[in-house]
Write a protein that binds this DNA or RNA. Structure first.
Lengths: 258, 258
DNA sequence: CGCCCCGTTGAGGAGAGTCAATGGCTGTGG
DNA sequence: CCACAGCCATTGACTCTCCTCAACGGGGCG
């Protein structure tokens, strides 16, 4: 429940007792191993999941084997709120790492929303944020270069990760392969590898044993045009990188050097 | 209200009187000229729009002028349900043609949802469908070729158009330019033009004065791997039954104080 | 130890982008 | 009523980003 509160604290202040309807819910906690499916495309969806720890991803497979990762789920994330409409899942959700998950049948979940307008508002915000992330993903894939895509996604994941864990760090423990990144961004693993090597060489990022270090977030944000507006983080000054910082004093409008 | 019912009929059967809470709402109808903005990025969003006629699109502009169209809005579509969370709009919505729109302030809208669980379910479905369309857009852009993208999008728009108007036809009156299609699909107008010319030559589509005719929907669907599952069009009868609905505490959201 | 998965790197290819010129249509104003 | 401007679609020629195929090396693990 901790991560969860962290996440929501980015948007609302909820007194501890405001959470009680949620804690009292008839949910069951479970653990999924890395590689296990939480939700399978085509099956009925009638449960809401809250990820307590670990990473998961939602993807779709095309007929010929192409895969598109739609989005990543981090600790504190809630899904599928869409199950409340009692439809079939149209995508598969898989655990990338071991995942601790709370599973709540949608009926009691809906009932709970009806009982606390504050919780309802909080969850509505989560749904809005998720949708907003999807839209940004569209912009990212549709109109950005490989390097921009990668930088932009790293910054988003970093921000969300920090928001969920509450710990400020430049290091992003990121259990994903080049293929995962490629399938998320509409690229090939080979090209992702090349592009990230170049980013390493120019001092933007570095890597060690499954974690990525954002060496120069400022520059990374500039050249991938990252702007957190779409995450709708109301109050979070601690994480916001200095936006009114060093104006580039270069007569020429030169966004990315390197 | 007609289109609107058409659209929802794809999912739920609602008796005419089930709509009454909606018709009684304090909404105002308006007309937007082609090119006018309905919603502007960065401004507060606290109204829900229902498109009664016309086409609109939602887009985002990057700093250097690149544009990404996130999705199209057709008659019967509802947006921004996200305004219910009282945030700032993160995208701009513009009318492509003249648009008749119903504008409903979000507060009374939420209250209405609280009073009819059937309407709440219907709108929830609309929100789920919209999100699903976004996800499909990600798959489309991320993992499909130019021809697949175009064919796939034409089929989706056709499907939605037919669903909204209720009239079955292969002709799609589509008031969009090559640039619009390009910006929606992550391509350039030039390449869209070339690709569509090729599609015309192979008898997949034809065009006359602003409308596109799907000459061979079957083949088009096959080669663009179009599958309507993601539109969630089946009727499910088992949505929260409306019987004995207590006026409040029954919807998905409730505004009033706790 | 050997297998398999992953990341990397090279060489060559292709799909989509850029730049630019042309022609059709529509609307407007002299 | 015609001339002209603007926008849009089209087409050609050339470029470039990203893809494909392929080989190699490292690390984890049974």
């Amino acid at each position: 429940m901790k991560v969860f509160k962290n996440k929501f604290a980015q948007y609302v202040d909820l007194a501890d007792d405001a959470w009680s309807p949620l804690t009292k819910l008839d949910k069951k906690d479970g653990i999924f191993d890395a590689g296990e499916d939480l939700i399978v495309a085509g099956e009925d969806a009638n449960e809401v999941f809250i990820l307590q720890s670990g990473w998961a991803l939602r993807y779709r497979l095309l007929e010929d084997g192409r895969r598109q990762i739609v989005n990543f789920m981090l600790p504190g994330d809630v899904f599928d709120l869409q199950s409340l409409a009692d439809l079939k899942a149209d995508h598969t959700v898989t655990a990338i790492t071991e995942c601790e998950v709370s599973v709540i049948p949608s009926k009691p979940f809906i009932a709970m929303l009806g009982q606390s307008s504050r919780l309802a508002a909080a969850f509505w915000w989560a749904a809005v944020q998720e949708e907003s992330i999807l839209r940004e993903q569209i912009v990212r894939i549709g109109r950005r270069s490989a390097r921009e895509r990668i930088g932009h996604m790293l910054l988003e994941l970093h921000r969300r990760y920090v928001g969920a864990t509450g710990q400020e760090t430049d290091q992003l423990v990121m259990p994903v392969t080049r293929s995962d990144i490629a399938d998320a961004l509409g690229l090939t693993p080979v090209h992702v590898s090349r592009t990230m090597s170049a980013m390493r060489r120019s001092g933007l990022i570095s890597e060690e044993r499954g974690s990525i270090i954002l060496e120069d977030r400022e520059r990374l944000a500039r050249l991938s045009h990252f702007d957190t507006d779409y995450l709708h983080l109301k109050k979070l000054s601690l994480i916001t990188p200095d936006r009114r910082s060093p104006p580039k004093r270069n007569g020429l409008l030169r966004v990315d050097a390197d």
